[in-house]
Amino acid sequence: MSEKTKPYTLITGASKGIGKSIAYELAKQGYPLLLIARSEEELKALSDDLQTEYAISTAILAIDLSINDASQRVSDWIKVNNYPVGILINNAGYGVWGDFSRSSLTDQLGMMQLNMNVVVELSHLLIPILSQEKQAYILNISSTAAYQAVPTLAVYSAAKAFVLSFTRALRFELSQTSISVTCFSPGPVDTGFAARAGLTALNKMAEKFNMQPNEVAKMAVKAMFSKKSEVIPGLTNIISVYANRILPKAFIEKTAAGIYKI
């Protein structure tokens, strides 16, 4: 399939981490890309590199998705430029670490807006566009934190649980359409997440389980194109999620609190 016959993929949070690695993975496969993140400089550098290395079409939009009308502005940008979007990857997100009662409410609400509302908004706004393709995909990036409560990451884990539940329901609703919906839930990945979350005290037990963003991206893209409903990458992460189902919640939460202790 030539690039001309392939629809655009829209990736949020494309300038760093998993989103950036997914951009490279799809570029290798010849997909034109719409790259969205806050940093115009980083997006421009990524766009230039992808065009040079893979000869694909790219367009960038530097925008803070946590502002209230950001999703509508993204949708308007797509329509004005008549981009045929066939893949939506809701990857943008961050965590706020610390005791909830001592953390900034503004920061927590901003995280909820990006991690939950934007996923809902972009999905709703882009489904009519995706539906125009013979085969389309939505890939929502959640986390293994979605499967348990995580003290000191209380709102983050709850937000990712929302993404997981929303994706499951949306997949069912769209099952008779051309749109396949996948939830991908990685565990710790070697990205800038810990620094952004303020996890300066992240201990070595958590760090040693980090996966690399490139390998995670490959697994995410494969899961999406395979039309998987829900994928957890890595045997350790799969075992961890399974343990959450059979072990007492109090034990799981105490263990999680020990990993992400203040």
Rank of each mutant, 00 (worst) to 15 (best):
M1E: 03
E3R: 15
P7T: 07
I11Y: 00
G13T: 07
A14F: 14
S21T: 06
E25C: 10
Y31R: 02
S39D: 14
K44V: 00
A45C: 11
L50W: 03
E53V: 06
A59E: 12
I60M: 07
I60P: 03
I60S: 05
L65P: 04
I67D: 08
A70S: 15
W77C: 10
W77H: 14
K79W: 14
N81F: 13
N82R: 12
L88C: 05
I89C: 04
N91P: 04
G93W: 00
V96I: 14
W97E: 01
G98E: 02
S104C: 09
L105T: 15
L105V: 14
L109N: 06
M111Q: 05
Q113N: 12
L114Q: 00
N117A: 15
H124V: 15
L126Y: 02
L126K: 03
L126D: 01
P128D: 15
L130Q: 02
L130S: 01
K134V: 11
A136S: 10
I141W: 01
A145D: 03
A146L: 05
T152H: 08
L153S: 00
Y156L: 01
S157L: 10
K160H: 04
V163C: 00
F172M: 10
S175T: 06
T177N: 06
V181H: 02
C183A: 13
G187R: 02
V189Q: 02
D190E: 15
D190G: 07
G192W: 07
A194T: 02
A194L: 11
A197K: 13
L202Y: 07
M205D: 07
A206I: 06
K208M: 08
M211K: 09
V216F: 04
K218Y: 13
K218A: 10
V221E: 00
F225G: 04
F225R: 06
S226D: 13
K227V: 10
K227T: 12
S229K: 00
E230Y: 12
E230S: 11
I232T: 01
P233G: 06
G234D: 08
L235Y: 13
T236C: 08
I239S: 08
S240C: 08
R245S: 13
F251N: 08
A256M: 11
G258T: 07
Y260N: 00
I262A: 10
I262E: 13
